[in-house]
Design a protein around this nucleic acid. Structure first.
Length: 431
DNA sequence: TCTGGGGTCCTCGGGCGG
DNA sequence: TCTGCCGCCCGAGGACCC
């Protein structure tokens, strides 16, 4: 497996056993901060915070020098500066990070086509089919790190394991600039002493629910009946934690991902009570969302509005549109209706507009609906019923009342109304 | 200390149609 | 015609991740 290196890291040496592994999780080290250092070497070795400087912004990324002072991502910048007053704060340059991200992903793709990006700076790689070309998974991990440094000038950490979950945990523990290989046989020993919080998917709430029952480590999870986990976390989450604690994780590396929603939200510098301003902001956010939908070739069936009040309570309202749309005006109207339905009992801190239930542009029900095709389906479905009722075939004409005299009269139409002829048709088989 | 912005997934309850 | 059951969709909210 690996050795503790005195800094809380656990790392493997080249040649460590990697039997039964095949999944790599690669995570760039302090990605945004490292890109800033790459572009301005005078920042090297200094505490660096990536984040806007206005009152309400939070830390997006921090160099390890800043983390040494307790600075963490998602911490308010003001708080970070109180912990590390001499830190250099620089605003994020997303366009630049995306540019470097492309280089990073290109390095991943050199080793395997089976790459599943999780964000701009990390991905799962399935290297089970790359052995003949590049070597064993453990060998690939060290090779990839060298190649990454050469191609981008950046360091990364790599977890190597039999499953995505263990690979992800391993890369986290090996950070920064490490490799941790967890051979399949070593998985139980690797997992057992770890905290429940270290599991991917167990956040503060779930950890609290478990710890409140005395379940602090993964070994504790192994000793806990599944019903207790279900009660603590809900059935789905309980089942997941039960399985992950045993090293069971059947998730494959997925190379294609379909976007499910697109949204924008805005925290105001000062809490807002002006309703007119909120209405105009809703329209502006809807416009941005609509533009992104059109760029991506999508339309939205559902519009969701998010309102966060000054006391941080958050409300969501959503509405399904009559027809999918990617028109800012249409999305904006829906979002404004949702806003009108919310009692603004406090000043508003944040507004968000999100498009959900995305469909490809032009595939709305109306655009795709072919009446002739629908009638063919109805006629097919009714053929069998017509036989049972002793009549002839039911046609579109019979249903519309222009009865074909060769058919059996009203039997089929009655059958249709009673829903007795729906076999194989849409709408379920029960009745 | 006072909590961003972009997402995904899950749960639960109500309405509705068969 | 009414009732109970079931599955599906919708809407709201919460937890989690980077």
């Amino acid at each position: 497996m690996g050795r503790a290196d005195g800094n809380g890291r656990l790392v493997s040496a080249p040649g460590a056993p990697d039997g039964g592994t095949g999944i790599l999780h690669v995570d760039m080290d302090a990605f945004y901060a490292s890109v800033e250092v790459l572009d301005d070497p005078s920042l090297r070795g200094k505490p660096l915070i990536i984040g806007a400087t206005d009152a309400r912004s939070v830390v997006s990324s921090a160099s390890y020098e800043a983390r040494h002072f307790g600075v963490r991502a998602a911490m308010p910048v003001a708080r970070a500066l109180s912990l590390c007053p001499h830190a250099i704060v620089t605003p994020p340059r997303m366009a630049r990070y995306l540019e470097v991200s492309k280089q990073v992903m290109a390095v991943f793709s050199e080793f395997t086509p089976l790459v599943e990006p999780l964000s701009v700076d990390e991905a799962f790689l399935d290297v089970r089919g790359a052995r003949r070309l590049w070597g064993s998974p453990g060998e690939i991990a060290f090779l990839l790190k060298r190649r990454m440094l050469g191609a981008t000038g950046l360091t990364c950490s790599v977890g190597v394991a039999a499953t995505k979950h263990v690979a992800k945990m391993a890369s986290t523990i090996s950070k920064p600039d490490g490799v941790l290989i967890v051979a399949a046989d070593d998985t139980p020993a690797f997992l057992a002493p770890r905290s429940v919080r270290s599991m991917w998917g167990v956040g503060p709430k779930s950890a609290e629910a478990l710890e409140g029952r005395g379940i602090r480590t993964i070994a504790d999870v192994l000793d806990t009946p599944k019903e207790v986990l279900d009660r603590a976390l809900g059935v789905a989450m309980g089942a997941r934690v039960w399985a992950l604690a045993r090293g069971i994780d059947a998730r494959e590396v997925v190379t294609t991902r379909v976007e499910k929603s697109v949204g924008h939200e805005q925290t105001f510098l000062h809490d807002v009570t002006d309703e007119g301003f909120l209405r105009s902001e809703v329209l502006r956010l809807a416009d941005r969302v609509a533009r992104r939908l059109r760029d991506g070739g999508f339309e939205a069936r559902t519009v969701a509005l998010k309102v966060r009040f000054a006391d941080f309570t958050t409300l969501g309202r959503s509405q399904t549109l009559g027809e999918p749309s990617a028109v800012g005006q249409r999305l904006g109207e829906a979002a404004r209706e949702l806003l009108a339905g919310i009692e603004l009992r406090q000043a508003v801190r944040l507004l968000g507009v999100r498009a959900e239930n995305l469909v490809p542009a032009g595939s709305s029900a109306l655009a795709l609906w072919d009446p002739d095709e629908e009638w063919r389906k109805v006629e097919d479905a009714l053929d069998g019923a017509a036989d049972r009722f002793g009549g002839g075939a039911v046609t579109r004409a019979t249903f519309l009342g222009r009865r074909d005299r060769t058919t059996g009269g009203r039997g089929e139409a009655d059958a249709l109304r009673r829903g007795e002829a729906r076999g194989g048709g849409p709408g379920g088989t029960r009745g």
